[in-house]
């Protein structure tokens, strides 16, 4: 079995960066671990999950769709240069799986989302498997596991003093080739098995069986009033969620030149669906909170056969009023039986 010593990690990432790719890695910024473009700074190793997810890499907060220049009668439109290749080190299995959920939305169907596709096809995901679960983790409740390879090009299983790499894709194998002289050969039991024994108390508490059908049948249930009452519509849950993908399109103009961009948006905002003329189909918090949970637990499964949640726990850690998916599933389970 192949073994990559932890001490070889910076050299390996440096080589990947030398190939012209932007390398992202988890770095400690004043006690908070964040995925950042890596330029040789110390790489964090003690974290459950970075504050931000792969969404920052594959669906950037803002992205230019086009640039334009000219007068109203003589106008030129230009598209931005294609994105550079990227390598992301240190993402967790839940976040890697989240990108496969986003693949369903952006790559399937009549229209392919070109911005996402180009980034996806030029990004190599080097996942570090989890040996412990944090207090907010619940991947196992939604079909994931601390060592699952889904969505990863390479899974690095942490062992003493290094990693055991597993390459589910040829892109991952190629990235590993850059470390061929750093990799050693060792005897070790299958590291994937370790994922089974990771304790994950929160996952044990979540009961999703049959909930989708009950939610559909009780669309107008008064419990949504009670649940949504404590929401502040701050949108945090949607921004930290690796599977939430809603975006807005906006133009900017400076005299005769400007650009059109898209950027993250949130279904929790009052004006998300506000139309010119004043009509708003989801005018209250009840409408919007219900939309978020039904999208994750009913609509997405109806379209793609799985929940739109990977159990990363960011909404659990972040929501200022505890209105996160495990809590809401708990409440709904109690009310709807």
């Amino acid at each position: 079995m192949r073994f990559l010593p932890a001490t070889a990690l910076p050299r390996w990432l440096e080589r990947l960066r030398g190939d012209g790719a932007t390398v992202w890695a988890p770095v400690d910024e004043d006690g908070v671990v964040v995925l950042r473009p890596w330029e040789g700074q110390p790489i964090a190793s003690r974290y459950v999950n970075p504050l931000n997810s792969l969404k920052d890499v594959l669906l950037p907060r803002t992205e230019t769709i086009l640039e334009f220049e000219g007068r109203p009668t003589d106008l030129a439109v230009r598209e931005p240069a294609p994105p550079q290749s990227q390598v992301v080190f240190g993402t967790r299995p839940c976040d890697a799986a989240a990108m496969e959920l986003n693949d369903r939305v952006f790559l399937e169907g009549t229209f392919v989302d070109e911005g996402f596709r180009r980034r996806r096809e030029t990004t190599t995901v080097l996942t570090v498997a989890c040996t412990v679960a944090g207090p907010h983790c619940f991947c196992r409740a939604v079909g994931g596991s601390p060592t699952a390879p889904r969505g990863s090009d390479l899974v690095l299983h942490p062992v003493e003093n290094g990693y055991l790499p597993e390459a589910p894709t040829s892109r991952g194998e190629k990235a590993l080739r850059a470390a061929s002289d750093l990799v050693e050969d060792v005897e070790h039991p299958d590291p994937r098995e370790a994922g089974r024994t990771v304790a994950m108390p929160l996952a044990e508490r979540i009961a999703l069986d049959g909930l989708a059908a009950r939610l559909r049948d009780h669309f107008e249930h008064p419990c949504w009033d009670a649940i949504s009452r404590r929401c502040h519509s701050c949108g945090l849950c949607t921004f930290v969620c690796p599977t939430c993908y809603c975006f807005a399109v906006f133009d900017s103009l400076r005299v005769t030149r400007g650009r059109r961009q898209r950027g993250w948006d949130s279904c929790q905002f009052k004006d998300f669906l506000l139309m010119a003329g004043g009509h708003n189909p989801r005018p209250t918090r009840k409408h919007r909170v219900r939309q978020r949970f039904l999208h994750k637990l009913c609509y997405f499964p109806e379209a793609y056969g799985e929940y739109q949640c990977v159990g990363c726990g960011r909404c659990v850690a972040g929501c200022p009023v505890g209105l996160h998916l495990p809590a809401v599933v708990d409440e709904l389970g109690e009310v709807l039986g």
Binding site: G109, A248, V249, R262, F272, L273, L274
Partner: peptide, 22 residues
């Protein structure tokens, strides 16, 4: 319904599981 993309990606014009744009 309000739309931003028109191609079923921006997550806006859904009514339940259906998108008005698609």
């Amino acid at each position: 319904l309000k739309m931003q993309c028109g191609v079923g990606k921006c997550g806006r014009c859904n009514i339940g599981p259906r998108y008005v744009c698609l």
